[in-house]
Design a binder for these strands. Structure first.
Lengths: 115, 115
DNA sequence: CTTGTATTTTAGTTTGATCTAAAGTTACGA
DNA sequence: TCGTAACTTTAGATCAAACTAAAATACAAG
């Protein structure tokens, strides 16, 4: 219930992750597969922000790392998010919103392997 | 109850304004007086963001413009903010947090009048 | 120990958010 | 109508969030 929580859920990208994790545990890799427009590294960084804010936690599981939401940390905001996600209009807006809110460099061509 | 609300309360500066307005109406000028580290223009811009998110509204009053919080738009988040503000520890942290989270240019010396 | 897979961390880049300063707008009152 | 006060908007500057690519780490299994 502090400022870090509020700024954590202020980011559409992080809300996207929360939504994926809302009713299932997922590995970092699975989260990344569901977010094809960013690199694995970017997902990992946002997971760290969420973890530092206490909104998600992870445990090792063989060679994987499994993430889950800590709903209790969200308090009443959890219900708000659920309402937003249940709203069909919101779903339609999601893609546009993510595209709009993109920051950072555009994808670059991977340098072709030196031979 | 949409994404604009969540990103609006994600900013410490805007939460500071919400707090000032929480239990009283204030003119834009009065808000600025309570925030001596930013210019009037910056306050006005943040008030616009809050108004666009539906979190505050304003009405003209003679030569002034009076702002007030629309608590109903905040839903359960309002109670969360109150809890945060009631927490004495949070109060101690406020100044440091604002200093840390500053963005944009540092104040420049006002150019001395050409003579 | 080596190889491969999963993830984190680092270094560097881009862009939007936030700011300042100044110009523009609106409304009151002399 | 003119001036002034209150506020908003614009143009430009700076900073940190969010990204990419690549290097580093962790850990399992052969």
């Amino acid at each position: 219930m502090d400022a870090a929580l509020l700024s954590a859920i202020g980011s559409p990208r992080r809300r996207e992750i929360l939504r994926l994790l809302w009713d299932q545990e997922l590995t970092a890799g699975a989260i990344h597969q569901a977010m094809p427009d960013v690199t694995f590294g970017a997902v990992s960084l946002q997971l760290k922000v969420l973890a530092d804010a206490g909104l998600v936690e992870s445990r090792p599981d063989a060679q994987f790392r499994v993430y889950r939401v800590r709903r209790e940390a969200l308090g009443p905001v959890g219900a708000m998010l659920e309402t937003m996600w249940a709203d069909a209009l919101w779903n339609l807006k999601l893609k546009a919103e993510l595209k709009e809110s993109r920051r950072g460099p555009r994808p670059r061509r991977r340098r072709s392997k030196a031979r």
